[in-house]
Simulated assay, not measured.
Amino acid sequence: MTDVVNQETIEPWELISPPVETVDLTLPQRLRLGVLASGSGSNFAAIAQAIAAQTLNAQIQVLIYNNPQAKAAERATQYHVPTVLLNHRHYPHREDLDGEIVKIFKAHNVEWVVMAGWMRIVTAVLLEAYGDRVLNIHPSLLPSFPGIHGVEQALAAGVKITGCTVHFADLEVDSGPIIMQAAVPILPTDTAETLHARIQIQEHRIYPQAIALAAKLKP
């Protein structure tokens, strides 16, 4: 998972844009990341593993999670990353939650915000604090199928290829400039569960690379 992608081993449908071999992903300075997660934390783990393998020059300063049952917190503990629970149900407005997120990130010297399965809509409070240093990953080839049911939308539409997208976040859901995408075929036997599992393989592959690429694009 942490290996550099070898173009010769990629099937035609595993298109990655841009090809990672054409981009210098080395970073002179270590990125200080703040991660937001709501669920299993598999993308958090992929990023942490890339850091441990020294294929991503970064450090995760803190993980913020909003779901008390999120397994992402357990994964963070395994990697000795501080965690903070901010249960969104305790905040009457989205702006209040984002204001607390900003305070915690600033206290931990975070310079890049990475949403890794963060199931909350971000507001101007977070985006204004971190500008164009807020990243998101979505399980479709945006701009197709935005929203929380991207996998199910792709299946219902009958398309033959879907995938995942890492992009800079903005106020519109699953919008903002695209950094990197990977394509995944939809098989005749696919269910939402099997398709999502294969998409996640590509998410874990491209997210660490996309973080480095974003830092090259927005130094």
Rank of each mutant, 00 (worst) to 15 (best):
V81K: 02
I206F: 02
K218H: 15
P18D: 01
A72N: 02
R120K: 14
P92C: 06
A53C: 06
R89E: 14
L155W: 04
G131S: 01
F105S: 00
C164W: 08
V35S: 07
R133F: 05
S17L: 14
Q209K: 14
L213G: 06
S175L: 06
Q54I: 01
I137T: 14
K216Y: 04
V173R: 11
K160E: 14
A157K: 11
V184R: 04
T191W: 05
G176F: 10
V35Y: 10
P19C: 03
I64G: 03
L126P: 06
F145D: 05
V102N: 03
A129N: 10
A129C: 09
H90V: 00
P68R: 06
Q78E: 14
I47N: 03
E74Y: 05
T22M: 07
E203F: 10
P12W: 10
A37K: 09
Q209W: 07
A182C: 13
A52D: 15
L141D: 12
R32V: 09
A124C: 00
L217H: 04
P188I: 02
K216A: 12
K160I: 09
A53D: 13
I121M: 15
L33R: 02
I101H: 00
L213C: 05
V4P: 13
P68Y: 10
K103P: 11
H204I: 11
S38G: 08
V23P: 00
A212M: 00
I104W: 00
Q78P: 00
P28D: 15
G150W: 07
S38N: 04
W112T: 03
I104F: 09
V110P: 01
